[in-house]
Design a protein around this nucleic acid. Structure first.
Lengths: 224, 224
DNA sequence: GACACCTTTGACGCATTCTTGATGGCCGAC
DNA sequence: GTCGGCCATCAAGAATGCGTCAAAGGTGTC
């Protein structure tokens, strides 16, 4: 299910959005201010963020920057201000769309559809092959030599980040941030522990990995 | 260069858009109606389409459908009609954004940036060629004569600073500052050590570098 | 409450990398 | 011609980071 994080300090709007989005099959979480939004995003890992710019504690562009530091999920900005300068600042900070209040809920839903459609169409490769194993990120299933392989929640999260960036080096800080949250940036021993488990479950020779590679001092890389 | 196709039947608007987009470094083609737009898109293969919905010959959604049949380039719709139903129809037909006229040109440019940023995020290739080696800063990969070359963290940091300033002289103090931090401004021996390693790994003849050049007493320079 | 499973921590051997020192070549200054 | 500064190269010890094993909390289930 597509996960959406709604950030708005006005309870009525947040509630209305939650109801409408839920009714259309999205999984919704809400946050009332910038700090909680960043924390919720780290825990919830949304596929899209609906962000009200008029938050009490932080500037909207700061929240965008905080999100863009580790996620590329679409950000749809809501704002009462229609000034072009505001829109430009938000879009250039990393937002994907900008809607001025009052907004039509149908239009907002259409923009959400447009944003998620693009996000999932481009880089979604639901099934990945790692040696003799087949990983399906959509159904959360791993089959290896005909046998089903069980992965824990943490193992899935870690594997998913790597698989969604095929061939690309993913920094250890980024991995820790996206799997364990912002407060675990230094716990590289977690990475060692879980990478070893993934290799044991997926690689033909766990001691000599071919697809889940270590880049010492920097991070890890999935090579197709 | 990023290519944009502008589709508008009003010559003034088409001209204004062409001038503004060209001034910002885009390559622009224009088409005055739907039929020519589809033909121009096939020939021009744009990275983004700015599409006016009020075309004389075809309905806007038809044009969108015609484009979506074979390209996933972002489509940014312009329209004089602000009705939500229109917007929803266009977005669900495959458009990525919808701007109502009259529009602010700065905002349009920001939306163009946002759309192209997302599109190019996946396939952006900031690859640099050093002799027979190919350096990809995004994926942190170096391939030389078909073989993969491994660089350490420090080597990457040093190389990245040089590659991001192609042709430019980078002072030794700046290099030391950016790679090792503010307390190493005088340790020029580090630079010698690591420049030698980089040349050994990248240059055809490490003793006679062609791309990673020393400027005695000043710093180093990457020549493409 | 007992059990199984997952997560979190700690410790150790090992390989690689970083740091440091020493040597020799090139070039301009004197 | 000699000297001193700057650079390239080589060769160590020191430090860091990784993989692995093992075991202590935590959590949910039966």
């Amino acid at each position: 299910m597509i996960k959406i994080l709604v950030v708005d300090d006005e309870p009525q709007i947040a509630r209305a959005l939650r109801i409408n989005l839920s009714a259309h099959g999205y999984e919704v979480a809400t946050a009332p201010d910038g700090a909680q939004a960043l924390r919720a995003a780290a825990a919830f890992v949304p596929d899209l963020v609906v962000l009200d710019l008029g938050l009490p504690d932080m500037d909207g562009t700061e929240v965008i920057a905080g999100l863009r530091g580790w996620t590329s999920a679409p950000i749809l900005v809501l704002s009462g201000r229609a000034a072009s300068a505001e829109k430009i600042a938000a879009l250039d900070a990393g937002a994907d769309d900008y809607v001025t209040k009052p907004f039509d809920i149908g239009e907002l839903l259409a923009r959400v559809r447009a944003a998620t459609r693009r996000g999932s169409a481009g880089s979604d490769a639901p099934v990945t092959v790692i040696g003799s194993a087949t990983v399906d990120l959509a159904t959360r299933e791993v089959v290896r030599d005909g046998e089903e392989v069980r992965l824990t929640k943490t193992e899935w999260q870690l594997l998913e980040v790597l698989l969604r960036n095929p061939g690309k080096l993913v920094g250890q800080r980024e991995l820790l941030h996206r799997v364990w949250g912002p407060n675990y940036d230094r716990e590289t021993n977690y990475l060692r522990q879980y990478m070893a488990q993934l290799r044991r479950k997926l690689e033909a020779d766990p001691a000599r990995p071919v697809h889940l590679l270590t880049e010492p001092g920097m991070g890890y890389r999935f090579r197709p």
